[in-house]
Amino acid sequence: MVDFAGFSMPVQYDSIIKEHEAVRSKAGVFDVSHMGEFLLEGEGVINFLQYVMINDLNLLEPSKGQYSCMCYDNGTVVDDLVYYEENPNRFRMIVNASNVEKDFQWLNEHIGSRNVKITNLSSVRSRLAFQGPKSDEYLQPLVDLDLNSISRFYFANGNLNKAPIFIARTGYTGERGFELSFDNVYAEKIWSNLIQTGASPAGLGARDSLRLEATYSLYGHEINDSITPVEAGLFWLVKPKEGIEYIGKKILIEQKTHGTERIIVGLNLLERGIIRENFKIFKENVEIGHVTSGGYSPTLKKTIGLGLIKKEYKEIGTKLEIQVRNKNLKGIVVSTPFFRNV
């Protein structure tokens, strides 16, 4: 068990590789209750989210969720998150564990005169991710709604063995699957119900190796308060939102139009070894960036990573060197995602 944002969390239940493979081949259950959950209510919610988020709320509709970032004025990232529109006056938002307090404060500071009330439900509700190719098959008998009717990024409210649940077809593994939220009192029962389907419990280690293969950004690694979404390759999140002012818009639109000096790229090694976060990247002995995430890919059976490097070296096929402790290993820029089934 490790401490993660104040929660005691299992890195692995058994073996990271076995848990990873279980999610790629059947299904895995992740306890993601450490993540934050807010309820936003009021007539001003959509107008408010248009101001603090870089994605466009006009692309959203009731029963649908949207991935977005909220940014500072300089375009760097406060947090990346998903919000779900229950109705135009009521949104559920899931944020990163380490950013719960910061986000809650940031959001409240920017409500202004709008009619918006934010409730922090993080400690009274639990969250599980149920991910993998068999997640539909395993979950359907337990719930009172038709999972086929929930498209990707949509959600519904229903019951799992009589326990009221929020269920969204979203995830962080590169597999089809669901994310669930429910009152704490149902947590143990739902966990054991899901494990009994044949799904494997999966810990933080597999969560990280799966998301890295799927090339989903992780706050504190590919994005943080000194990296912008455009630098992180999330330029598609930056929406023009004509006539709407939003925090960070000026610099992000500028970056999206003209590019950035640094950019996140995919990396492989041409020699044996493992690259990890913060290892330095060189081109002909000149430092050009650093590894933001790295590790072993159980699916591809090789080392993969992401690095923030100078734009001149971003082309796929560019050879570079990555410093692994006392020596430089040969690496290469490769296309991403490394692996996704969705």
Binding site: V11, S15, I16, I17, K18, R272, G273, I274, Y296, T303
Partner: peptide
């Protein structure tokens, strides 16, 4: 260490 993937 957990799952070992590379030894030098």
């Amino acid at each position: 260490l957990g799952d070992i993937v590379y030894i030098e």
